[in-house]
Design a protein around this nucleic acid. Structure first.
Lengths: 342, 342
DNA sequence: ATTCACTGCGCAAACGTTTGCGCGAACAGT
DNA sequence: ACTGTTCGCGCAAACGTTTGCGCAGTGAAT
């Protein structure tokens, strides 16, 4: 395969000159540039990323660190939509996106990527309470941005939506519809996103004079099956909820399946509200009322922020929060009035 | 950051020895290995991928080449499920997965990845009739595997399901239910997958004595919106179809929305069959009859095959086809009898 | 005692770039 | 004619590994 020396030889210049032409240095004459570019073309030259990276210490790639515990995210549309946002800006800016789903530990994987110089910065998802990855990121002082907020104070940048407020809004909506026994069906309980959403849910109840009942809060996992199982548990308790706020749409779908199976009508017997507003939410039957969190935009902002950190060469400790809306459809029992923006 | 020399110094050996310990060479004494490993640990050493790659000429990464024209795949669950399969074996084997969604041309992007030594091999999706990427891959003689079959003879390996047969089976199912006006709602018409599915569809009609009607074949794009628009067109023609075979579940969802909007009952007024059997198919209303193509398994097999090519260091020209089943639910109007395996 | 094989490790080259520095030529200003 | 500046380019070092080859030491066989 053609190296820079081959190009140099062909164009009758030194490798340095070829390199400078590649970088479009102003100190090279137009005439020489032309000659070199012709040679580049003729040999179909593509710089060796290894050699280049070795000296520049930069990769032109960003990493997405997917902890083994979050493999379930992969098939969840909310993740796809987020990743599509990331991919979109990556494409615009000409950087590659590397998925790291190593079966090693997470910090080991992070080291592999950052210390091993495989990426210039990293996008983190699915963080949990006192997540060790965040400490490692802080130690490394590498460009990194987190989807969601860190549980504990951390110097990391993040982009998030206000999950607490969003869950609060959704719960208030159910309260306004007259529900008093409202369940919460969440993902893993140590995920920060779950913590925030359950907090907002509880706060809404308290503000409306209903005492939160721990039996009405169940944790599951972010798959349809998780929603099914969780809803089964919720509907099995003696004084069953008349409404359930689900921390994810796919969870809500599974929950609806459970409800149907048990002979409950949605929303007649059971109101359901989802989260994330994936594209298929409006296709469910009944169409799913859901909190739209703009996963695509979250992805775009995540990637943009990361690329800016990379450009600056350091963590920026910036925080962006993306707004949300409650999209009212049929599963909650209200007549759809469109969206309530917050 | 610690280099191999730092480790060598600390362990009182030469860099060569450290390198050999890393490779677990048998020619190094246990005692020395212990010392070196202690040093590795203490410095938290991680080899620089650039330097290593420069000499070994291998990256430990595989690429997924996503043509700009296939960005729509990204948010389609069938793609996610396929990618989850890929990621699963990548994780097991400790390789990274790099997504290349460059806004340059496709062949340019391929060169960027392969000639630029960013990946050891590449997974290709969404190929079209006489796709120039395939020629480039053939020229490069690099490890590569295609999801789907090439339209023209090509030395590339691929993993596919028998789309022709699958569409044939689905169409026969509709014919057996008594339908004679059967529509076909596909993705872009030059995608090989569309070509195969429409071929199977036509063949089934011919074999049952019904003349294919070109007006009943519409091409759209693989998004819910695409299905909506396509179905609108199908339902607008004078002698409208009583059943529609959709080349994708998301397309089918969009189609169902259009049908509902026009006041048609599914399956009463219009039978619908989807393709791919994504997880949400059974949650649609009515539950979607669909051809299950095992996207996850396709992903697994793709990645495994690619990794084997990489291990052998050359294209293997192997072809694997994964079986499919027709999963009969409610949208086709038959009473569900489970799955028909082929 | 000499040869031989083997063990355990180090030397140094090589991989393909980028970039600081320097150098000759051309040219302008005195 | 001399100095100074600018322009256009090349030299060579450096980036951090891997690996072929060689070499000293040890022990066994002759």
């Amino acid at each position: 395969m053609a190296t820079i020396k081959d190009v140099a030889r062909l164009a009758n210049v030194s490798p340095s000159t070829v390199s400078r032409v590649l970088a479009n240095s102003p100190r090279i004459s137009e005439e020489t540039k032309r000659r070199v570019r012709a040679a580049l073309e003729q040999l179909n030259y593509h710089p060796n990323a290894f050699a280049r990276g070795l000296v520049t210490n930069s990769t032109g790639a960003i990493g997405i660190l997917i902890p083994p515990s979050a493999q379930e995210f992969f098939v969840n549309p909310f993740f796809s939509e987020w990743m599509a946002g990331v991919a979109e800006v990556a494409r615009q800016r000409g950087v590659d996106t590397v998925l790291s789903t190593s079966s090693r530990g997470e910090i080991e994987t992070l080291d592999h990527m950052i210390r091993g110089r495989r990426v210039d910065g990293v996008l983190l998802i699915g963080t949990r309470k006192s997540d060790p990855v965040l400490h490692e990121v802080a130690k490394l002082r590498c460009p990194a941005v987190l989807l969601g907020r860190p549980a504990d104070p951390s110097p990391i940048s993040w982009v998030n939506n206000d999950n607490r407020r969003a869950a609060y809004d959704a719960t208030v909506h159910l309260l306004n519809l007259g529900h008093r026994r409202i369940g919460f069906l969440g993902g893993a309980s140590d995920l920060v996103v779950t913590i925030d959403r359950v907090a907002g849910y509880r706060q809404a109840l308290l503000d409306h004079g209903v005492e939160p009942d721990p039996r009405l809060e169940v944790s599951s996992f972010f798959l349809e099956q998780g929603g099914y199982l969780g809803m089964m548990r919720l509907l099995a308790i003696p004084d069953r909820p008349s409404a359930v706020l689900c921390a994810d749409d796919v969870l809500a779908f599974g929950g609806m399946r459970a409800a149907h199976e048990l002979g409950f009508e949605v929303p007649g017997d059971l109101a359901i509200v989802g989260f994330n507003d994936i594209r298929l939410a409006e296709l469910a039957h009944p169409a799913l009322t859901s909190v739209r969190v703009h996963m695509h935009e979250l992805g775009v902002r995540s990637a943009e922020l990361l690329l800016e950190e990379i450009a600056q060469g350091k963590p920026l400790q910036r925080h962006v929060t993306v707004h949300h809306e409650l999209v009212i459809r049929y599963s909650c029992g209200a007549k759809p009035i469109g969206t309530m923006t917050t």
